[in-house]
Computed example of a mutant assay.
Amino acid sequence: MANLWTGVYPAVTTQFRDDESMDVEATLSHVSALLDAGVHGIIMLGTVGENCSLDRQEKVDLLKATVELVGGRVPVLTGVAEYTTSMACAYSQTAQEVGADGLMLLPAMVYKSDAKETIAHFRTVASAIDLPIMCYNNPISYSIDITPEMFDEMSDEPKFVAIKESSENTRRITDIRNRCGDRYTLLCGVDDLVLESLILGAEGWVSGLVNAFPAENRLLWDLVQAGRWEEALLVYQWYTPLLHLDTHPKLVQYIKLANVECGYGSEVVRAPRLPLVGAERAAILKIIRDAIETRPTTVSSRGDAALAR
């Protein structure tokens, strides 16, 4: 099964009104801004999209509206993070029906499955649909590790085409390549390890901070693709304090606050998440505002990246 999932893929935030009701129109406006900035694909309903805070119908409605808006310009994937394998199959089938181009599939939520159970979950979902699948490995957040050996075992299933590697262990990029060759497209899923991952052979980036800084994400990606490593490093050094926000348990609140500071959407989250207040809010705002003041600019006809000072 062909896979074209390379480049920058935002894990898009889901917008809510002040009463915590889902705001489809505001979310689609944000998706449009990301498309205008040149992202290579869209991932709805991931962790940053507060998947587990939405009910099934909300997920379906938002995914359907996004597919219609994007209109085939770039791939649209949906996160699949359900409590049981049967629920994951049912949602995946509906995602296929409304036109999603693929799945970003997680292990079943809450229960900590062993290797055999995890593989069975992934295989069962794959058997239920005819879509390509990005396997999402995030043992830091979800306490289930899909190892290179497990990916090797699953390599006979052609619907598994890509891996979002979020173990925070960049050795995994090389270990998967050594074990599985080029069987999978590898995407970095940890914002503040992206340059390291791209050097080691990752072909894509599933990003959270791209929601607030889409042009800068694309700039970093383009510099790497052009082999302009010194400029890429300069941008990455500027970006890293922001990218650290993606690895905190409150990454959704942090990214949504960055969205607001950059003119995108609302910072409203659904409980049990709460808005940022006090010293924590002030500290995160300082990181965001310092970055905005010194953000990269293109300053010459050659397109060299420099930092505003």
Rank of each mutant, 00 (worst) to 15 (best):
L77T: 05
L77A: 06
L77S: 09
T78R: 03
T78D: 01
G79Y: 01
V80R: 04
V80G: 13
E82L: 11
T84W: 04
T84P: 10
T85G: 06
T85M: 06
S86I: 05
S86F: 05
S86A: 11
S86N: 09
S86C: 00
A88G: 06
A88K: 01
C89N: 04
C89Y: 01
C89F: 07
S92E: 02
S92M: 03
T94A: 05
T94C: 08
T94G: 04
Q96A: 07
Q96D: 05
V98K: 12
V98W: 11
V98M: 07
G99M: 05
G99C: 03
A100S: 06
A100C: 12
D101L: 03
M104R: 00
L105N: 01
L106Y: 01
L106V: 09
P107Q: 08
A108T: 14
A108D: 08
A108G: 14
A108S: 13
A108N: 14
M109N: 11
M109H: 12
M109C: 13
M109W: 08
V110N: 07
V110G: 06
V110P: 00
Y111H: 15
K112D: 06
K112A: 10
K112V: 15
S113A: 14
S113M: 15
S113H: 10
S113W: 15
S113E: 11
A115T: 10
K116T: 15
K116M: 13
K116E: 15
E117T: 11
E117W: 05
A120N: 12
H121E: 03
F122K: 07
T124R: 15
V125D: 09
V125A: 08
A126Q: 02
A126C: 00
A126K: 05
A126P: 04
A128F: 07
I129K: 02
I129A: 07
I129C: 13
D130S: 11
L131N: 03
P132H: 05
I133C: 05
I133K: 01
M134W: 02
M134P: 08
C135W: 01
C135Y: 00
Y136C: 09
Y136G: 00
N137R: 08
N137F: 09
N138C: 12
N138D: 13
I140E: 12
S141W: 04
S143V: 08
S143M: 15
S143K: 02
I144R: 11
I144H: 07
D145M: 14
D145Q: 15
D145V: 12
D145N: 15
I146E: 01
T147F: 05
P148F: 08
P148E: 03
E149P: 02
M150N: 06
D152M: 12
E153V: 00
E153S: 08
M154N: 08
S155V: 04
S155P: 08
S155H: 08
S155W: 09
D156Q: 12
D156H: 15
E157W: 10
V161G: 04
V161Y: 03
V161E: 03
I163F: 03
I163D: 07
E165N: 08
S166A: 14
S167G: 11
N169A: 07
N169W: 09
N169L: 14
T170M: 13
T170W: 10
T170S: 14
R172W: 06
R172C: 10
R172Q: 13
T174D: 13
D175G: 04
D175A: 15
I176L: 11
I176Q: 07
R177Q: 13
